[in-house]
Design a protein around this nucleic acid. Sequence first.
DNA 1: ATCAACGAGATTGTTGACAAGATGTTTCGA
DNA 2: TCGAAACATCTTGTCAACAATCTCGTTGAT
Lengths: 220, 220
Amino acid sequence: MTDKLTGAAGREYVANAIRQALRSGDLVPGQRLVELDLAEAYGTTRGAVREALQDLAAEDIVEIVPRRGARIRAVSVEEAVQITECRSALEQLCARKAAGGASDGQRAELRRIGADMRQAVADGAWDAYSALNQRLHELVIEASGQEVARRQLDRLNGPMVRFQFRLALRPGRPAQSLPQHLAIIDAVAGADPEAAARAVAAHLDDVIEQLRASATAPRL
Amino acid sequence: MTDKLTGAAGREYVANAIRQALRSGDLVPGQRLVELDLAEAYGTTRGAVREALQDLAAEDIVEIVPRRGARIRAVSVEEAVQITECRSALEQLCARKAAGGASDGQRAELRRIGADMRQAVADGAWDAYSALNQRLHELVIEASGQEVARRQLDRLNGPMVRFQFRLALRPGRPAQSLPQHLAIIDAVAGADPEAAARAVAAHLDDVIEQLRASATAPRL
DNA sequence: ATCAACGAGATTGTTGACAAGATGTTTCGA
DNA sequence: TCGAAACATCTTGTCAACAATCTCGTTGAT
């Protein structure tokens, strides 16, 4: 670790570090990202940082203005809603295909996740619930076999980390989303494509509603 | 024009040139893209070419293997189908919103495009039909106000240029797609969101079928 | 004839220095 | 006190040379 991470290695390292810093709140939207500072902070070269910033710009996480450098991109509530609408469209597609084509093992894991989620909510284990939630979405996408949709969804989620954070912390939110998640699980595991799409749509419509509500009551 | 296009200007210039070369068939999938060659061919520096290739890689048009350079990415039929499925999901979203919220001017332009398409097919004006087709899709997206979906769709279309090319040339194809396009126009211009989504889905399901068919009958 | 080791040439990766543009501060005049 | 010009500093953009790696043809042994 005493060496500088150079080139391609540093590039990925810096990109991940910035993503992480954004999740943990160490970086806030609008914040300037100065190449030399980042290079020193992460023990890499300016070149590596530059390329990392290009990558993050391609993911719409940072915004690069020529001759003025990079800053963390601010995501408006309206844009967050649009992103969620796109997620909904793509995840409906995945849910439909997953309901049709998931393996037995995947259906079993889905049911297990459902049981664990119930338990987590009953126990007030919010972190565990959040992790299960993420795994659920991942698994549906994976089971769909839709690689292209997976990539698109990854991209869409990049700029959303800040909102996910705020939403998950709203009191009573897990209790509200649990039945929606269980409905998705039932439909996919039960091989009912249309019900799966409807369940996903209903869930994400609710998320959109929450996002809009968070616009007027922004704190926490 | 005797000067070298340098830096940022060259970057965009090269990226566009490669996109164009791909459309016109001057570059074929799998073809190697050597930085120095491109730099000389387009009168820029290696640095500009390098960054242009990064951009194209972010669009999934080229594939960069470390230490081995860039090549035009090959898109399998299966992937083309998946891309079209995603397009379908996102364009349904846009069509729904466009049907709900398009301006009077936009609805008028849609109807005009419909009339022109009819005419183009009647006249055998395939180039004109193709241009109208593109404008139609663009306009629906624009009218939806869904900026995020627009960006996603742009990305999805990047690697598809080769397939669009082959599909549009199939004999009888315009006559087949015309009623589908007219259905989309009627639904969007007529402010019927659900019909618009259905019409888009039907159209793209047909495109998928054509893609699959082209897998077994590959020539022209 | 086949295969492996070798080496020359080709190609990409990396660096450090410099150029060019933006930002912020100080100074001067009204 | 306010505003604007001049300047110093900070930051990004660009380049050219060098280093590292890969490709491919050649050679020689089995």
